[in-house]
């Protein structure tokens, strides 16, 4: 089976739900502002924006709205991959998925694409208005560039998410583990707290996450330090590709375990 029918099915599933459930749709628009507002509110209360600019080199408003947009987009993608096996278990479709002749890796690549597109498009409602407010037309162009980079960053997370999904779902109470893995990945992405400020151990682990390199590229674009950004992009893409065979093995391992143990029903 080619990727196209899988993508078509996933698009129908995700967009059908998105437009049917208006509250979830509105929440998607509000969330980047909510997270950015939360951190800015606290930051301004305990300190000063000037100190932030001195340290990071970026206006905190621009930084936080971008960080929130990045985190939301990347979370949406990894969430789709990480939670789908659980969701299929809850709604009782997992036996059909396991019995179907669908290529698993193609399926898991197709799963996050529709939401990724929706989330990246949310850049028009989150970062674009703020950038335009600060930088006018140049801001709109920057927003488009950031959206493209975030799309690449989110895509680069698919393979590592598949590796984690396969491994985690062989363990019981996997959703609880996922609730630890998700925020941990968000911390290590360096979107809210740039990698350069992290302790060495955290930096080293962060280096293994493909999209953390894209996040660094985004930060560098803002500070105007463009040296080595192509190397960062190349590392991100290389890491994403390197995780793919691991992802295939991980999915096969999960599937074998499920077939051997039987599927739990709720």
């Amino acid at each position: 089976m080619s990727l196209y029918p899988l993508l078509k099915a996933e698009f129908r599933l995700v967009y059908g739900e998105l437009f049917r459930r208006k509250s979830a749709f509105i929440a998607m628009i509000i969330y980047p502002y909510l997270f950015a507002g939360f951190t800015l509110f606290f930051g301004y209360t305990i300190g000063s924006p000037n100190l932030f600019i001195e340290r990071v080199g970026i206006d905190p408003v621009i930084f936080m709205i971008t960080a929130s947009y990045i985190v939301m987009s990347i979370t949406a993608v990894i969430d789709d991959v990480l939670w789908r096996p659980l969701s299929d278990t809850y709604i009782g479709t997992i036996p059909y998925i396991l019995a179907s002749p669908v290529n698993r890796i193609k399926l898991f690549i197709a799963i996050p694409i529709p939401r990724l597109l929706a989330m990246v498009s949310m850049g028009f409602t989150s970062i674009t208005p703020i950038y335009v407010l600060y930088h006018g037309f140049r801001g709109a162009v920057t927003a488009l560039l950031i959206m493209a980079l975030v799309a690449l960053g989110a895509l680069s997370m698919v393979s590592i998410a598949i590796v984690i999904a396969g491994l985690v779902h062989t363990i019981s109470e996997s959703w609880r583990i996922l609730n630890i893995v998700r925020p941990l990945m968000m911390v290590l992405l360096g979107a809210y707290y740039p990698r350069i400020f992290m302790p060495f151990a955290a930096y080293a682990i962060s280096f293994l996450i493909p999209s953390s390199h894209i996040v660094e590229v985004i930060h560098r674009l803002f500070i105007g330090s463009l040296d080595g950004i192509y190397i960062s992009l190349a590392i991100a893409i290389t890491l994403a590709l390197l995780y793919m065979p691991g992802g295939m093995k991980s999915l096969m391992y999960w599937e074998r375990r499920k077939v051997a143990e039987g599927v739990k029903t709720y």
Binding site: T39, G47, M186, Y193
Partner: peptide
């Protein structure tokens, strides 16, 4: 996740 960036605002 949410507290670490606040250190960047601190005097």
């Amino acid at each position: 996740l949410f507290m670490s960036p606040l250190t960047l605002f601190m005097d």
